[in-house]
Simulated scan of single mutants.
Amino acid sequence: MYNVGLIGWRGMVGSVLLRRMHEEGDVKKINLLLFSVSHAGKSVTVICGQKEKKILNALDLNILKTLDIIICCAGDDYTKNIYFKLRNINWKGYWLDSSSFIRTLEDSLIILDPINKKRIYQSVKNGIKTFASGNCVVNLMLMSLSGLLREDLIRWISVSTYQSISGAGSTAITRFIRQIQEMSEILYANCNHRSNLILSSEKEFLFCIRKYSKYLEHPLFFDAVPWIGKDDVIRDGRTSEEWKIQYETNKILGYNEKNAIPINSTCVRVSSIRCHSQSFIVKLKKNVPIEEIEKILKKNNKWINIITNKKKRTLKQLSQTNVMGTLDINVGRIRKTKIGEKYLSLFSVGDQLLWGSAEPLRRMLKILLDHL
């Protein structure tokens, strides 16, 4: 069996990945070792019914260099600290990562095998050893539009994202839940009579919003945050998250500056726990009827569900709660715009912890095991 180390297994992406590896039987094919910086030396049972595992030190290069494959979900800081140290001591293993840092390396490949499987297999054959799961929004966008991309129908894309709190990490979710709890207690503490409920709620609501303005750079409860990404990486007015959409999409597709698909984006954080929604305007290279577009989208991706543009089905199925915890990508509100017949409008929703990060890593592990 190959030695596979998982770092960051306690976090949002890592815990989902570990669960999926057990569900799909991947752990039976490998010697899985768990690593941590803060919990090294402890023994834990990570999956109910499984034997205890001893947690190894994620900073110990002597242990890490014995691994055939490392899967890292610990974030940019850890990766920047350890990755080059390992490579510099001539470690020849495969590094799989969910961090944005690895995606920018010239000798890395961003993996999303339903989209770029041929490039993945060719890269493995050519000796590439470093792979990264793409940005969550990028992955979900490409999965949603994969049929149109395969048919080479897209001239450019304009997208507005509605991204969940899980994209900001487990700490963000904990704070969000605390906001809900404490705000609810304050709102109803002095509202014993229905007659004063509205006025009292309005006053206390404003108080709570201002109180929690320190969390995540902006309150999340009952709000939308129109900035995602670092404040020191702005490129021609885009946030770092919006820059990633353009850069990573074209890197996954293997496009260079000459044939890159132009992508305009506005990224917003909303009060959803786990799923991302996206609203697209796509300029097509030619006029294609809606019925044909729906067939193209569906036939190229078995995880796509086309939701007809009717109110009842849209409200029931084009929602984040409908796809949460599944690999489904629901696409609806498909229609032509008033701009012209080549301009397509559509809306998609998917689980950002699955296709957005964990699932591409799990599937890449399987590809490597088959290759080895």
Rank of each mutant, 00 (worst) to 15 (best):
T314Q: 13
L6H: 12
N190P: 05
N62C: 03
G11P: 06
T66H: 07
W156S: 14
K285H: 05
V4F: 08
K295T: 13
T266N: 12
N190D: 15
S98Y: 01
K85V: 02
F207H: 15
I290W: 07
Q352C: 14
D236G: 01
I329R: 01
Y188N: 12
W156F: 11
G5P: 01
T308V: 07
K65D: 10
E185C: 09
K338Q: 13
V13E: 04
S240N: 09
K338S: 13
Y2T: 11
V225M: 02
L369R: 02
I177N: 01
K244C: 10
I102W: 00
R363M: 07
K286R: 15
I47H: 12
N300T: 10
K311I: 11
S279K: 05
I263L: 01
G167H: 07
L346S: 00
I110T: 02
L56I: 09
A58C: 01
Y247K: 13
N62H: 04
K53L: 14
K125Y: 08
I89K: 05
N139T: 05
E106F: 05
L67N: 02
D231S: 14
S38T: 15
Q278R: 03
K203R: 15
N126H: 12
N116R: 08
N139W: 01
F347K: 10
I290L: 14
T249A: 00
E292R: 13
M12K: 11
V323K: 09
Y121I: 08
N322I: 10
N309G: 06
L17V: 04
L61E: 04
A74C: 04
E241S: 14
N88I: 06
R10G: 05
G169K: 09
A74Y: 00
I110G: 06
E185W: 04
V159D: 00
L368H: 08
Q246D: 08
R119G: 02
K286M: 12
Q352I: 10
G147H: 00
L153S: 03
S133Y: 01
C48H: 15
L318T: 11
W227H: 03
I70W: 07
K125S: 02
V288K: 07
L197G: 09
Y78F: 12
S146F: 08
G237D: 09
E291W: 08
Y121G: 03
L59W: 04
N330Y: 14
W227M: 00
A224Y: 03
D236C: 05
E294G: 10
N31H: 10
Q320P: 04
S99D: 01
S184V: 02
F222S: 06
S164E: 03
L142N: 04
P219Q: 06
G340W: 00
W91I: 08
K117I: 11
K80Q: 14
Q163P: 03
I157M: 02
M1N: 09
R235Y: 15
S146P: 05
I30C: 03
